[in-house]
Design a protein around this nucleic acid. Structure first.
Lengths: 245, 245
DNA sequence: GAGTGGTCTAGACCACACG
DNA sequence: GTGTGGTCTAGACCACTCC
């Protein structure tokens, strides 16, 4: 069966992007089955009236996503194993929403305070300089799921408590025009202290999953530092990752 | 100051790769300071005697690594925050070795047995069909750090106990010509059962960090399924990740 | 308006896999 | 040997940013 592909040269969408989207949709949809060969690049370019570099660019973007594999002398194949979700800078809010869990957020603290040494080091600001402190409890189905404590440098975004209760922090930052670039994360575990246990409706000493994260924008500024604790019976970190080549 | 760049056209190493390596080294070395502009692509191409697409390919590879940021109408800049380690399919053995911890491995079990339903589902093999089972204790400085239980489909690699004690599983697979492609991971936490606690020299009920992983090669075969437990006082998952754009 | 990266073309030669 | 992807060239025009 012949795959239907076409590009619209009058569209402002780049040609390689149009092609990669169509290929991705065909893979997602099962029209291109795992293991099937894509056909050689020259022929594909001729069929679409594109140059080979343009077709290569489209294919390369899907190789980078892990959907296709290229073998010299063989061809380009659709990967067998379905790549579900590449690891991304995930927002717990988005994660829960995607899982259909209707997340709720309760803002416990939303204030400005002097930075501790730890916070100052993480955000790259002077010690005792003002930073925002936000503490939130994230619930799903009315059950506490995670306790989130975040610090932000001043003047970055307006931290409105109502907004914080209806969406995630990353969405607020993106909406404010901040381009997130990278994050440094650390995931661990430890026993709950008495106040932690109380907040999360666990028993003191219960195991907790912990995550610390510093997020940077594309200018290299630290835009957020967070220390989070999760109830491991309710949440775990799941992700797919690709091998660097 | 002018950055010294040159390419060797007689080398079998691709020109774009030579260039990207030199740029990466200059960033690492501090010759290219964070925030500095790289100079426009046309001029850079002319200076090196390369075509612009080749120079772009070199720059793009570093953008993908998170070392550079491009802005239309502005230029290409070195990212401020140092990207340390991109998240990769990490081997605990390599992690420990990189941290100078001289890892040691004790093979507890190395056998072939019928696959349980869970293992069969993860590896995509028939239930009760033969699979390798390897249980290892990973130590650093003589202290137990993690308990690793892995399952592998038969006929993939020879699992020599001596080799397993001197290197990591991923190295053995790569050495056997297996091209690792992607992995699906889940990281969580729970309380140690009595036998788990004993293995890791912890107390029963102590918090443990857990990781489950299925690894696929580039043909889509599952090549490994592992369930690991870590002592959270000795180990945490640390990684840097880039935001998908 | 000037300068930058973003996209695109129409070729070319090479390296590798497979029969 | 044949076919594939891997690399490379020398241009071109456009979109965006900044002055």
């Amino acid at each position: 069966m012949q795959l239907e592909l076409s590009v619209d040269r009058s569209s402002p969408v780049p040609l390689y992007f149009q092609l990669s989207q169509q290929l991705e949709a065909a893979i997602e949809h099962g029209t291109l089955t795992p293991g099937s060969l894509l056909g050689n690049e020259i022929e594909l370019a001729a069929r679409l009236g594109l140059s080979r570099p343009t077709v290569r660019q489209a294919i390369q973007s899907l190789v980078d996503k892990g959907l296709l594999v290229r073998r010299r002398g063989v061809g380009t194949q659709v990967v067998h194993s379905q790549v579900k979700r590449p690891l991304e800078l995930s927002s717990l809010y988005d994660d829960l929403e995607a899982a259909g869990q209707r997340p709720a957020t309760k803002v416990l603290v939303n204030t400005v305070e002097p930075a501790s040494a730890e916070v100052a080091a993480a955000l790259g600001v002077a010690e005792d300089s003002d930073v925002h402190r936000v503490e939130r409890l994230r619930l799903a189905h009315g059950e506490p799921m995670a306790y989130l404590c975040n610090f932000l440098p001043p003047g970055l975004i307006a931290l409105d408590t109502d907004q914080l209760e209806t969406t995630g922090l990353y969405r607020l930052m993106r909406a404010a025009g901040i381009t997130l670039h990278s994050a440094r994360q650390s995931i661990g575990a430890r026993s709950a202290t008495a106040p932690e246990a109380k907040r999360l409706a666990e028993q003191a000493g219960a195991p907790l999953l912990t995550m610390q994260r510093v997020t940077f924008d594309d200018t290299g500024r630290a835009v957020e530092y967070g220390t989070h604790t999760y109830r491991p019976t309710r949440y775990s970190f799941e992700f797919q990752l690709l091998v660097r080549t």
